[in-house]
Amino acid sequence: MKFAYYKAESVQEAMAMLGEFGDKGKIVAGGTDLLVGIQHGKYAAPEALVDISFIDELSQLNAQNGDGLSIGATVTHGAVCKAPNIFEKFPALVEACSQLGSPQVRNLATVGGNICNAAPSAETAPALVVLKAMARIAGPSGERQIELNEFFLGPSRTDIKQGEMLVNLQLSEPAQGSGNAYFRLSPRNALDIAIVNVAAYVKLNKDYAFEDVCICMGAVAPTPLRASIAEKAMFGETFSEKLIREAGQLAKTHSVPITDVRASAEYRKEMVAVLTERALTKAYERAKLNM
């Protein structure tokens, strides 16, 4: 493992470096995925790494009252877990961040990195998708925004183009009457990777009918996948075990997992149904408390 290493002091400087190195350069923040990937030959070793973790602006985590949540690109999972006031409104995100890897990995690995690596099983992706995160991306010709739902293109592939970088993730304030939750399944209780993960967001109207539902499944498709058919089926309905079960079945039908060393496709499909039910039920319970 050998590469040149540059510390960027600002987003502008990072952009300039990326421009200079072209496809021979790569951004590093926590490096937990990148360094291991380089060592094991999963990634071609870049000639230059541009470290963005010293840029103050990118390490900001702001949960201002009533103003949503802003997660800088280099905010770590550990920082999200430890920050006060986040769980109350964004429990799905905290549940995801607190299950990634181990305490040590969480202190180093960034939420932005987890998103940009775009592993199909990315811990935080389903939660951020259902929380309708907007990704702010800086590029040579200025900044642009994209809904996280549109951001993932395939395993290790995102909408970020050469010369661009993620600056932050913006979550808007969850609506009154809404709730969200995240569940994952893995053999071990720590130091593990999701066989399947599911996040759900629901919003109830005053009659307790589902007015907005968002379900996102991980590790069952090349990218985190919205269970849009299940979402639609729930719209306007009120909570019942039957409805939740149906939603789980629709999510299962929607999923397209593969068989690998961690689980078979068949098992993953069935587990999507189970975790979808659990995530929806938990999100619903939370929504009721938030009426």
């Binding site: 053999p187 071990r188 209780n189 720590a190 130091l191 593990d192």
Partner: peptide, 11 residues
């Protein structure tokens, strides 16, 4: 050690 899983303190 991620894909060959020995028990952690939580298991």
């Amino acid at each position: 050690m991620l894909d060959y899983k020995i028990p952690t303190a939580l298991d």
